[in-house]
Design a protein around this nucleic acid. Structure first.
Lengths: 205, 205
DNA sequence: TAGGAAATCTAACGTCGTTAGGAACGAGTA
DNA sequence: TACTCGTTCCTAACGACGTTAGATTTCCTA
């Protein structure tokens, strides 16, 4: 009995080591270096051992994607502690882009079309939920009734993703991208605010 | 003399056929099917022949990327004919996202980090310039002085890219993404307008 | 200590991008 | 017409990839 639990513990341990090795390779050398053989070598095993812990390479990569979103989520929660409602939104924007700049390869994999769309959406959900929550409190604080909060959240998420991509695709530097994101968010929110102010009817119709 | 020109013509012709075959494979079967051997088979040659026309696969792919931007540019120019200044901007947004939805695999390759950043930026430039031009006329028509028009253009470009990506990454349907893009653009522009109106000073500070 | 399951390895398959080396072709010249 | 030479093209191969099969070793248990 005790030996079987120990074996299970060892199994879980090597599984974790594989993930960590994969993450290290990805972050330090990019996605091109992320091969099964390379990862196996780093954990001092032969390649087939990896397949005892993951069905295939995609499953392993998905684990990295999930970790990436987890990491991003914690940074989001930190930014969400900002008391000022408006500044909180721009900080989220800034943090999002900063994350993409600090973990370019991880960010790239997090949004790589090769990983299954459903899985990608699933692991991204918690982070999106934080944004949604912040948007809700923002709209309440400014008496802005959004006709479709989900839609509004998707707009913000897409905008942040796009501007962060400008950075990691090399179109603009990360610092500049952060400013762009902050301003984009500010402009969108201000637009919704004025729209709601102009007609008593809800914004984002 | 005449034979050498004929040979050159034939060379250029097979080169073109290779590009067309590659484009066809990409658009109909996706990037995973885009292999040198497959393309060579489709033009009834052996694989090494491709390397007489392109230094490597990346060079061939870059040709597809350039074509994609060319295609997008023509659709942009068409949308730019819309007389109404505001509607013109939302139409650009809509067309951008529609393009991504109609040519998902091509769009994916157009923004794939594996193609060189400088080259990618270079081939994308004309399309961005159209957007910049439209933004300039828009700001003039609304007496909105943008502090940094380039920055403003980058924001719009990034936003469109992000929201279009929501569609091709499978987060939202294409029709919905088009509406999102239109609204995002509308909100941003309205935000800038308000900002400019509020203080006599320029928007997008 | 013998047996059997679990863990691990080596070797291989098929595919990829890419290159080397030689065969076939076709135009200009003796 | 026969020779030559540059171009064009193909077959074969290399190394690396993800992945699987089968043999071998390790280690617990009875």
């Amino acid at each position: 009995m005790s030996t079987s639990t120990r074996r299970a513990r060892e199994r879980a341990n090597t599984r974790e080591r594989i993930i960590e090795a994969a993450l290290h390779v990805l972050e330090t050398e990019g996605i091109a270096a992320l091969t099964i053989r390379r990862i196996a070598t780093d954990v001092e095993y032969s390649a087939p051992v990896v397949y005892q812990h993951f069905a295939n390479k995609d499953a392993l990569v998905l684990e990295l994607v999930a970790y990436g979103h987890h990491l991003m989520l914690t940074e989001f929660r930190q930014a969400a502690q900002e008391p000022d409602t408006d500044r909180r939104m721009t900080r989220i924007a800034s943090e999002y882009v900063r994350f993409a700049g600090e973990h370019p390869h991880l960010y790239q994999v997090m949004n790589d079309p090769v990983v299954d769309a459903d899985e990608r959406r699933r692991v991204a959900e918690p982070a999106i939920d934080v944004l949604k929550e912040l948007l809700t409190t923002w709209s309440a604080a400014h008496d802005v009734v959004l006709a479709d909060p989900d839609q509004a959240c998707e707009i913000l998420w897409g905008t942040l993703y796009g501007i962060a991509s400008l950075s990691y695709l090399g179109n603009v530097g990360n610092d500049r991208a952060r400013r762009l994101a902050e301003q984009a968010l500010r402009a969108i929110l201000l637009g919704w605010q004025t729209e709601a102010l102009a007609n008593g009817r809800p914004a984002s119709s």
